[in-house]
Design a protein around this nucleic acid. Structure first.
Length: 634
RNA sequence: GCUCAAGUAGCUCAGUAGGUAGAGCACAUCCUUGGUAAGGAUGAGGUCACCGGUUCAAAUCCGGUCUUGAGCUCCA
């Protein structure tokens, strides 16, 4: 009985009898066999040693495929657990999955793992890797599994087992003296894990629930070669340099201080200038795209929040009420109720729709202290908020415009890669099914029409409507939400919003709630990290520094500055009595895009010498040539 | 909010058998007027996060509070 195996490149191989995936890999090339970590047989992930006894499609996974990496890191997590159990037998193991970059394992241990502990564990892992222990799979019944882990006093494993259906086949993986409950598959042996680095330890709740016990988590990463590990560590180092908190301090952009309060941002002049430029651009773009700008108060009476429902479902995130002449007021965590109040101030005809109300609205939310993070998570922030109120017929057109509008705006700040998510109806939701369907479909249809790739988060929508989120990555690959486009079936109802249709009847409009940048603070942070502090010329707070070689050129420098300012360039002069090298170094470190150096020669010729940050000397030229050159970059 | 770690000059950091603080950069003044990433001298600058305790004596040891960081959880 022969076995025909189809490979991803479309080729087929025939074998006279059943054969292991590893042997097929060997047959293709010994190098592949060496790199092989697991097999995907007819779409199912299996150990590389799995015997194939019928015609199948086979994919061999190595560290080069995402699935291969995942297994590799998962197996490394097992290796780490083995090392920990050998060093501290009393520690209980819980779970240890692979994550996007590496793996972690949660342990139940009273004392935290110290730096020294991590080093010890890493050392032991290397020893175990050198022993090249095979990961061997064993299938057994639930009862058998329970008895094994019960003997080892691994109560967390018992808890996991107790939740698995009785008839399901349970598998364990053993390497050396370590046995773990695991679905698998795993890499063939510990020897494949060549380079290991344990990165940090921290606390984590059992099953992510803060009512449960706090476990001790260790994060790590591993690679098939030291070279790859080194590259990864270098990447982390590079990323740290781009951290917006560091750049914010170095470039004197913003600060957050204890006296003022955590999560509340102070914008210094340089940061404020960048923010001003972002906001001005934002307003212009919105006006050009049919939005109306509005302004609304920072506080509002409690009945407003009663109507909106925020006091019911959002109270935990709101600051405590304040008393104003016996009335309760709240500082706003959202802009929507104000925007809707503006809509409701007048009667509206279907002829006016869509109405697009936009505001850079500053909101305050009480965030738990542990979640604050630079400008990314703060307690007071400005949403680039807008509400689009339209008729059912206008919905898909509006959604499509909105997606294009959002992506265009993000692109104009230099961003190129986005992750798009579509979130659909959750279990508990308000609104008619027909509305949900119509809204979700128009979101999906628009994304498809625009040829955009997106992932669907089934049931991930807000209770009041489906949404599209666009995320941007920060320096170390963490994704942060910027754009959110959300349907809202809740507030139009609660605020009894209406428009008069062609039939002279009152109708309920559709409402889309959206933010493109998300919040100015978060966007500013991602922008800064994305550009590593080297902002595009149009966003640089100081675009040019004029540097006279000696004091003799000061007058010429001032005249030049005036001419630059008149042409709209943000330009300053370094008048300090320092050498040119010193001034240049200073301007380079402040990441000022253009340096304009003038000495005796330039003053006599009425010319200037330009230098571009990150590029160096551009040579001497006339004032007009310099302006032309600079303008070409704007 | 929880776990762990940390908080010393504007910034980056030294400072443990407890004995009332130190460097570099930045800043000020003076000298120097020097052509593409740090010229020299002098000086000023600190309630060692805050509150309490132990001690003859606390940046240092103990307790509490605040803040920051890494996570958990949550979100723009």
């Amino acid at each position: 009985m022969s076995v025909i195996i189809s490979l991803p490149d479309g080729s087929k191989r025939e074998y006279p009898a059943a054969i292991s995936a590893l042997n097929v890999a060997m047959d293709i090339s010994p190098r592949l066999a060496d790199a092989a970590l697991a097999a995907e047989i007819d779409g199912k992930m299996c150990d590389i040693g799995t015997i194939i006894d019928h015609d199948s499609e086979l994919v061999i996974h190595t560290f080069k495929t995402p699935q291969g990496q995942e297994l590799y890191w998962h197996s490394t997590a097992h290796l780490m657990a083995q090392a920990v159990k050998q060093l501290w037998p009393e520690v209980k193991v819980t779970i240890g999955p692979a994550i996007e970059q590496g793996f972690y394992y949660d342990f139940d241990r009273d004392e935290p793992f110290t730096e020294d502990d991590l080093a010890k564990i890493e050392e032991r892992m290397k020893e175990l890797s050198a022993q090249d222990l095979p990961y061997s799979r064993r299938e057994l019944s639930k009862a058998e599994a329970i008895s094994i882990f019960d003997k080892m006093n691994e109560s967390y494993k018992i808890e996991i087992l107790s939740e698995i259906p009785d008839d399901q086949v349970i598998s364990t993986y053993t390497q050396g003296d370590f046995i773990d409950l695991c679905r698998g598959p795993h890499i063939p042996s510990t020897g494949k894990i060549k380079a290991i680095k344990l990165l940090k330890s921290s606390g984590a709740y059992w099953r992510g629930d803060e009512k449960n016990k706090m476990l001790k988590r260790i994060y790590g990463i591993s690679f098939p070669s030291n070279k790859e590990l080194k590259e990864y560590l270098a990447f982390l180092e590079e990323a740290a340099k781009r951290d917006h908190r560091k750049l914010g301090k170095d470039l004197d952009l913003f600060s957050i201080n204890d006296e003022v309060g955590p999560g509340l941002v102070l914008w210094h002049p340089n940061g404020a200038m960048i923010r001003h430029l972002i906001e001005t651009y934002w307003k212009d773009t919105h006006l050009r795209n049919g939005y109306k700008l509005i302004y609304t108060p920072h506080v509002g009476r409690s009945n407003l929040w009663q109507t909106s429902g925020h006091l019911g479902f959002y109270k935990e995130n709101m600051y405590a009420k304040m008393d104003v002449e016996g009335q309760d007021y709240y500082i706003k965590p959202m802009n929507c109720p104000f925007h809707l109040s503006i809509y409701n101030a007048n009667h509206h005809s279907y002829r006016e729709l869509p109405i697009r109300l936009a505001e850079l609205g500053t909101v305050y939310r009480y965030e738990r202290s542990g979640v604050l993070h630079g400008l990314m998570r703060v307690r007071g922030f400005t949403q680039d908020d807008a509400h689009i109120i339209c008729t059912p017929e206008q919905v898909s057109d509006e959604v499509e415009k909105l997606i294009v509008f959002s992506l265009d705006m993000l692109k104009s700040f230099g961003f190129k890669e986005f992750m798009i998510y579509l979130s659909t109806k959750p279990e508990a939701a308000v609104g008619e099914d027909a509305d949900w369907e119509m809204a979700t479909n128009s979101l999906k249809a628009s994304l498809n029409k625009l040829g955009l790739e997106f992932s669907v988060d089934e049931g991930g929508g807000a209770f009041y409507g489906p949404k599209i989120d666009i995320k941007i990555k920060d320096a170390i690959g963490r994704a942060w939400q910027c754009t959110t486009i959300q349907f809202d079936f809740n507030l139009p109802e609660r605020f009894d919003m209406q428009y008069i249709g062609a039939d002279n009847q009152a109708h309920r409009p559709y409402m889309i709630h959206r933010a493109v940048l998300g919040s100015v603070e978060r966007f500013f942070a991602t922008l800064l990290e994305y550009h590593g502090g080297n902002l595009p010329l149009w966003l640089a707070p100081v675009q040019m520094m004029i540097m006279p070689i000696t004091d003799a050129q000061l007058d010429y420098a001032r005249a030049l500055q005036e001419k630059m300012l008149a042409r709209g360039l943000r330009c300053e002069i370094d008048t300090r009595s320092e050498k040119i090298g010193y001034k240049i170094r200073d301007a380079e470190m402040k990441k000022i895009p253009y340096m304009c150096i003038i000495g005796k020669k330039e003053a006599e010729e009425e010319s200037l010498t330009l230098r571009r940050h990150t590029q160096g000397d551009l040579g001497s030229m006339s004032f007009e040539d310099a302006i032309t050159k600079i303008n070409s970059e704007l």
